[in-house]
Nucleic acid binder design. Structure first.
Length: 199
DNA sequence: TAAAAGATCCCCT
DNA sequence: GGGGATCTTTTAT
């Protein structure tokens, strides 16, 4: 059994215990982890995240469970996928105990493997840097969509998270992007030296 | 029943 | 730097 540290070894699969903590804690710890898709043919290192909690007015879970945000209240390690702006999907890692609505939004990642497939899905004219440098771009590159809402990231689903090697650059915290409420908390974290962050 | 806002992205100027 | 695309969810009447 893997402890709340999420496994010490590179390549260790995400464990629910790792996510069963406050989203702001998990968010920072997820930097450097790898999102895998297509059974490992697609890989990208997470370089930018944001945290959302129930007490947070910017969070989908702020007003309690609904059909849309139900996965957010599911077991830790669940994938919460939502549709926004009439055309985009965004992916989150559910955090906290089962029944509590917390999650970490995956905002940007650095492609490690399967760049050709990512580029094909993203459309022509996209540089490697632009494949996953935004929450909806990441979902488009990995083909994350509504059908994956509520699936697990801990193994056995279409997507999984695995611990990457250390040696990350400096981490910067700041206000979250694209929200009108909840701007007071610096719950966006990113690797400031990495060119794959969204901004 | 209607209206507005939304955890975004892309293209144009 | 600014605006349009596009539609679901939520809130107001």
């Amino acid at each position: 059994m893997v402890g709340a540290d999420g496994g010490q070894r590179v390549g260790a699969l995400l464990d629910p215990g790792f996510c069963q903590r406050p989203a702001p804690e998990v968010a920072q710890d997820l930097l450097g982890w790898e999102l895998w898709g297509e059974r490992g043919a697609l890989r990208a290192r997470i370089v930018e995240v944001e945290a959302y909690t129930e007490s947070d007015p910017a969070s989908h879970s702020h007003r309690g469970p609904t059909p849309r945000n139900g996965a957010m209240f599911g077991p830790p390690g669940t994938l919460y996928v939502y549709f926004v702006y009439g055309m985009h999907w965004c992916a989150n890692v559910v955090c906290g105990p089962h029944g509590v609505g917390e999650a970490v939004l995956l905002r940007a990642a650095a492609p490690l493997r399967g760049q050709a497939l990512m580029a094909a899905r993203r459309g022509s004219g996209r540089s490697e840097q632009e494949l996953c440098n935004g929450p909806a771009k990441l979902c488009q590159a990995f083909a994350v969509a509504g059908e994956h809402d509520g699936s697990t990231l801990c193994g056995g689903g279409d997507f999984e998270l695995r611990r990457g090697p250390g040696g990350l650059g400096p981490v910067t915290a700041g206000p979250r992007v694209g929200i009108s409420q909840g701007r007071g908390v610096p719950w966006r974290w990113y690797l400031s030296d990495d060119p794959h962050v969204s901004r």
